[in-house]
């Protein structure tokens, strides 16, 4: 695994690049009468890894969609530092420094390089005329940013496949391409939607290391939706737990592990067995196991085949 050297070198020192706080305040999302998110609030501290967990249908993906501007919040606000994100178009939010990956892989045709360069869209300027006429400014810009994209690819262990068509890559690699593409946007906040889902053990470890080194090397904030509890307990600085669109708990992973509300949410109301830590740990461990069994054979298909990934409708 390449270390974080090139990335740290580029961004951290820049005074302009201070990582702001991400503030989610009382966000409510309603679809035709259904409440997908109910007054959810949380704050992502600069440079931290903030996990959003919850059973399926809890509203995690809805939350991501609000943060990235895909959905409009019915009520409530999202702020990045002093910028209000609520109501902005997705590409404006991306411009302000929020990047995300998707639960299933969404790459465009072409090579890994093409995909990473797409991530640099907002950072580059070459328009139709300059590009069409092959003006020196456009050529220079493209060359410069391609070098940067290559650095990020190396960082994500994708250097060897930089010029390979993404369509030919195995599942785990494509997942990393998606994350590298988000990093190419030089984000202040990175939203990772189930970054290790469907990966085998080795790939999980490698991706977890990459996530940690992004935070450590770049100092950017990461919001993480994941079912792999082991990963979350290892990486997260803070955890927000959603259930039925409501925030039911928030805090340090160790505290969450013992939270009775969380245990109830995960194990079902009928199995409430007290506030002791052991059963919860077992329950969460079970979840980890379940996630591990997610088909690693999903290699050939771009669509995440996990059965229960639908949000509550």
């Amino acid at each position: 695994m390449t270390q974080s050297v090139p990335l740290a070198e580029t961004s951290g020192a820049d005074a302009d690049f201070a990582i702001p706080e991400l503030n989610v305040r009382a966000v409510t999302v309603r679809f035709a009468g259904l409440v997908a998110l109910d007054a959810v609030s949380f704050t992502v501290a600069p440079g931290s890894i903030h996990a959003v967990i919850g059973p399926n249908g809890a509203g995690k993906s809805t939350c991501f969609n609000v943060l990235s501007g895909v959905y409009k919040a019915t009520r409530g606000t999202v702020h990045l530092g002093e910028h209000e994100l609520t109501g902005l178009a997705p590409h404006k939010i991306a411009e302000l420094g929020i990047a995300r990956t998707f639960q299933n892989i969404v790459l465009t045709q072409g090579t890994v390089a093409d995909n990473l360069m797409l991530g640099r869209h907002g950072l580059t300027k070459a328009g139709f005329t300059a590009t069409a006429l092959h003006l020196p400014s456009a050529v220079r810009e493209q060359r410069r940013h391609r070098e940067r994209a290559r650095e990020i690819a190396e960082f994500m262990d994708l250097g060897a496949v930089f010029d390979a068509p993404v369509g030919l890559l195995p599942y785990g690699v494509r997942k990393r391409v998606e994350m590298a593409r988000a990093l190419c946007m030089e984000p202040k906040v990175l939203l990772l939607d189930e970054p290790v889902a469907g990966m085998n053990g080795a790939e999980r470890v490698r991706t977890a290391e990459a996530i940690a080194s992004v935070r450590d090397g770049l100092g950017i904030s990461i919001v993480l939706v994941e079912h792999d509890m082991g990963l979350i307990m290892r990486l997260a600085d803070e955890v927000t737990v959603l259930d039925f669109g409501r925030r039911i708990a928030s805090g340090h992973p160790d505290a969450i592990r013992r939270d009775p509300e969380v245990i109830r949410a995960y194990l079902g109301a009928g199995e409430e067995e007290g506030a002791a830590g052991e059963p919860v740990a077992a329950g969460l461990a079970g979840l980890v196991g379940a996630a591990d069994e997610a088909p690693a054979a999903a290699d050939a298909t771009p669509v995440h085949v996990r059965q229960e990934n639908e949000e509550r409708q």
């Binding site: 969404v106 797409l118 869209h121 070459a126 328009g127 139709f128 092959h134 810009e141």
Partner: peptide
């Protein structure tokens, strides 16, 4: 030139997924 440059990549992204393209910063 267009297709190999920045506009071409953005257009391809729009085809493959408008949502992903927008999230990548492309004014769809």
């Amino acid at each position: 030139n267009l297709l190999r440059g920045r506009p071409g990549r953005a257009l391809g992204a729009v085809r493959d997924s408008e949502i992903a393209a927008a999230v990548m910063g492309v004014p769809v």
